[in-house]
Every structure is written in C-alpha cells, then in structure tokens.
C-alpha cells in the first residue's frame, strides 16, 4: 500500500539560496560566513533580521546575483498579496453572513446586551484613566503653545475641539482594541481550536449569528457611549490642569469650551466611535475564527487582532476626517 507523501522539508522548498551559495562559490566570491549561514534562511533580501537568521544574510543579498533574489522577492510579494486577498475575501464573506443575520437581532437581544455590558465594564476603568491624562496633557501642551501668542481663555476651545473630534474617539478605540478586541480574538480563537465553533455549526446554530453578530452590534452601540464618557472625563482632566497649573478660572475654561462648540463635531466623534467599534469587534471575531494551531495560534491571532484593528482605526480615522470635515 502506498504511503501518503510527506511534506517536503523547508530547505527543499527554498532551493534559491542553495543555488546562490553554489553560484557564489563558483564565482569565487563566497565568504565562509555566507556559505555557512544562508542555507536555512528563507528570504535573503529581508532587511529585518529574524531570530533564526544569522546577521550574515543581511549582507548577502547585495552580493547575490540579481536574478535569484529577484525571483524569490517576486515570489514572496506574490505570496503576501495572495494571503492578503484570502484574508480580505474571508472577511468579506463573514460580513456578508453578518448582514444576513441582522434580521434576527431581536431574537438575540439578550446576547447583545450581555456583550455590551462586558465590553463596557471591561474597558471603562482603563478609559477613564487614559482620558484624564489625555485631557490633562492636552491642556498643558496647549497652554505651553499659547503663551505669549493666544489668550488663555481660548484654552478650553482648543482642548475641547481636540478631545471631542480626535483624542477621545481614537484613544478610546485604541484602548478598547487592546482590551476588548484582544479578548474577543482570544475567546473565539480558543473556541475554534477546541472545536466549540464546529459544535455550534453541527447543532444548527450559526456561529456568525450567535457569536459575531452580538459582538459587532455591541461594538457599534457601546463605543459611542464609552467615547461620551471619555469626552467628559478628558475635559474634566483638562479643567483640573487649567485651574491648578495654568491658574485659569473654571468659568473661563468652560466658557472657552462652549465658545465654538458645535454639536456636529460631537456627532462626528460619536459616528467615528461607532465605526471603530465595528472594526474592533469584527477584526477580533475574524481573527478568532481564523485561529489555527492550539494555544500558540490563539496568542498569534490575539496579537494580530490588536495590531490590525489599531492600524485600521488610524487609517479609517483619516478617511472619515477627509469625508466629514471640509477644509
């Protein structure tokens, strides 16, 4: 009976480097260091040394014949594009299933409320802490830049705008990404590797409806609430600095806040918060669903969830800004 083919070892799959070693040896240009250390190295042009790679390989690509490393470079770019495409494709499919499950939201109201409570309780203390200091430091920095140029009664105006439009939504989102996004990815990732998601599937319970929809809905609804808290606490933090350190009266500072305060700024901040909330939970869920390979895999998807969500938050913040605020 034929034995199934075994996966080829890593060395065999990356012959490029061996070929380079031989080429170099033939050309008489090889140094012992390069010959010894390039065999297990996967991507010779990478400028970031990786733990298993010897520093020698960082130098190697510049000596390598152009064609071999170029081929491997193109191959690697191709692999990355492919992986990205698969990721975005999978995410799109999940969003599709999520939208399809939205009509059942009322039947899952209990799950949504539970997620909202967890999300709020988990992140509120940290958000209050970060917001106080965000407000405080922005008041201090604004005062530093105002001195001798801008009257201090505008301090509240500057701080208020910055907090409501940018600081509170973005910093809250980053905190929640680290707190809630990570725990969603870890929880669902564990469920994936212990077959609990498979178990839902075979019980006829759609995991997207049961696990993803409540979390994403709760993200969309709860983030604006958290950002409102953050707005308030940050402005209080700024007020404390204004009164105690800049020696402004509380009334002057608060009048400054009110001076050019537009409700539309507030709405924009809350709208952004909602989008960020969706991004955080969606990426957390998707990372969790994608998890492979035991506890280590769970760790990987958790870190990935925080990194990807944070990057997407900052990018979408810029995109939303250009759409909502005309210069």
């Amino acid at each position: 009976m034929a034995r199934p083919p075994r996966p080829r070892p890593r060395e065999a799959r990356t012959p490029v480097i061996h070929r380079f070693a031989v080429n170099a040896a033939e050309g008489g240009r090889a140094t012992p260091a390069i010959l010894c250390h390039c065999a297990p190295i996967h991507r010779p042009w990478s400028l970031v040394p990786r733990p298993h790679a010897h520093p020698a390989f960082v130098i190697a690509p510049f000596a390598a014949p152009a064609d071999t490393s170029l081929v491997e470079l193109i191959r690697d770019i191709g692999r990355r594009i492919l992986r990205l495409t698969v990721y975005v494709g999978g995410l799109t499919v999940m969003i599709g299933r999520l939208l399809a499950s939205l009509p059942q939201i009322l039947g899952s109201a209990r799950l949504v409320v539970y997620q909202m409570l967890t999300m709020g309780v988990r992140s509120l203390p940290l958000i209050i802490l970060t917001s106080v200091f965000t407000g405080a430091v922005s008041a201090w920095q604004a005062a530093y830049q105002f001195q001798n140029f801008v009257p201090m009664r505008y301090l509240g105006t500057a701080v208020g705008k910055a907090v409501v439009i940018e600081l509170a939504p973005v910093l809250t989102a980053l905190v929640v990404a680290g707190r809630v996004g990570a725990s969603i990815a870890a929880e669902l990732g564990t469920m994936r590797v212990t077959e609990q998601i498979d178990a839902l599937e075979v019980m006829g319970v759609d995991p997207v409806r049961y696990l993803v929809m409540p979390r994403v809905t709760s993200g969309a609804l709860m983030m604006p609430v958290l950002v409102l808290f953050s707005d308030f606490v940050a402005i209080m933090g700024a007020l404390i600095v204004a009164v105690l350190m800049v020696h402004l009266s509380a009334a002057t500072f608060l009048n400054g806040v009110k001076l050019f305060f537009h409700m539309s700024d507030m709405y924009a901040g809350l709208f952004k918060a909602s989008i960020f909330g969706i991004i955080i939970s969606l990426i957390g869920c998707y990372q969790g669903f994608q998890t492979r390979g035991g506890a280590e895999g769970v760790g990987r998807s958790t870190t990935g969830a925080v990194v990807i969500a944070s990057v997407l938050i900052l990018i979408s913040d810029y995109l939303i800004a250009t759409m909502l605020f005309r210069v």
Binding site: E187, T190, A199, E201
Partner: peptide
C-alpha cells in the same frame, strides 16, 4: 445552501473527541 444544511444538522448529534463543551 446554509439554511438547508443547518436544518439537516439539527436532526443530527455529534460527540466530539475533545467534548467541545462551551466553556462560557
């Protein structure tokens, strides 16, 4: 399609090797 697949699955039960109990 998914809906019909779920309908069939509801008529089935699976005991997973590791149990796969929902720990929440």
């Amino acid at each position: 399609d998914r809906t019909h697949l779920y309908e069939l699955r509801m008529r089935c039960g699976v005991l997973f090797q590791g149990g796969a109990l929902f720990d929440s």
